[in-house]
Design a protein around this nucleic acid. Structure first.
Lengths: 219, 219
DNA sequence: TTAAAATGTGAGTGAACACTCACTTTTATT
DNA sequence: AATAAAAGTGAGTGTTCACTCACATTTTAA
């Protein structure tokens, strides 16, 4: 393995993609399903070939290695889900336009809830491998800290200036809020076998309410 | 694989254990370290043999299969950590003796924090495999629901009767509290590379406070 | 229409894997 | 001290794995 880190390789491989063959799409679909179900390490390339009704050689013609196939699955998801938290969401969910931190948090929660639901299988793959592979996790965390957390801090400063958020250090606030919200996604989409029979809005109200009251105590 | 479920096999294999050889202990130690670091699927038995300075055959003499070795690692931990939550903790942390739900929760948090810290490596193995293996997770969850949740519900009823806890359905309360508390353990011991420079008591106060205020809103 | 490039194939390959077994060494029993 | 039982060994085994490659088919470009 060369000196490149994973994210560089992710971006590089994403650049290469022109158009996907029908067979490529079938390969990716099968890979996502199998990785989500049994994990990367327990899925063989011959199994993926069989399910996609494709010769095993075809997989390697397009992706070169099994590892690259995993990246081809994860890349588009990360490219959408992580920066989205920083850009798309921050526009749709513009802090300046929101009535308060609660509304902002609620909008973010609902936005990501729907995105993860639409990409449930890939989310499962990412969670599994995030826990399983230290190297991948460390590089992802570095990326998140570098690019995403900055935006969250900006939003928090905004609401703190408006007196809508207690004047705790940003880092402390994030550590109180983020694990709680994210654990809901992990439980719902990666661990539980089925979703609870509650509307998204009710769920959002409950969780945001919980978080807001929890934070308020520090004022 | 026979009709036995995992937990039955766990209990059966635990029954067999008489006394451990020095080499057996070295094997278990190496297995824990390697499983925690790279995951079960990415660790080979020859690697475990090498690190424990033991012939590969010795591993199979004692454990029969690689899968059984994993169970031999996980069993004692589960036998201590899960029932402990139901018995030891509920005696040491007797609901009737606690000033209130907050004190009870705080005591439980500190108790498990210390236990997981002492068994950090095994905790990492369990978390990794819990996320990675659907079958193991489902059986573990069934066990937790059957044996542990019952105790938690009893404690909650106790505090509700004393008016120390809002009169929400137990299930709902648990779903609000448990993910938050447990995610703290997962982040701290399974995902983060080092522990934060905060005293256990401060951490307990922060988290319990957060949870209590979050719940109180529902009154 | 034809050449070239891209896509697709599946038998084949070496390495790694979990596990076996005939045998040796150590420990426990009398 | 003799014997049996338990623990330990490592070369060997069959299987599975990711990956290759010479060739076939399809698509694109001129």
């Amino acid at each position: 393995m060369s000196s490149n880190n994973i994210l560089d390789r992710i971006l590089a491989s994403a650049k290469l993609s022109k158009k996907e063959t029908a067979k490529q799409q079938r390969i990716l679909r099968s890979a996502v399903d199998l990785f989500a179900e049994k994990g990367y390490a327990n899925t063989s390339t011959s199994e993926i070939a069989k399910r996609s009704e494709v010769a095993e050689g075809t997989i390697f013609r397009h992706y070169g290695t099994k590892e690259n196939l995993l990246l081809a699955v994860i890349v588009p998801f990360l490219k959408e889900s992580l920066p989205a938290m920083a850009q798309e969401v921050f526009e749709e969910v513009n802090p300046a336009k929101q009535a308060g931190f609660g509304h902002f948090l609620r909008a973010m929660f609902l936005n990501r809830l729907r995105f993860f639901r639409e990409n449930k299988e890939i989310f499962r793959v990412v969670v599994k491998e995030f826990v399983y592979r230290d190297e991948l996790r460390n590089e992802l965390m570095a990326h998140i800290n570098r690019d995403i957390v900055v935006y969250m801090f900006k939003a928090m400063d905004h609401f703190k200036a408006r007196g809508d958020l207690p004047d705790l250090p940003n880092e402390r606030l994030l550590k109180l809020i983020f694990p709680y919200v994210f654990s809901q996604f992990v439980i719902r989409f990666a661990l539980a076998s089925e979703e609870p029979p509650v509307s998204d809005e009710e769920e959002a109200d409950a969780i945001v309410g919980f978080v807001l009251r929890g934070i308020e105590g520090y004022r």
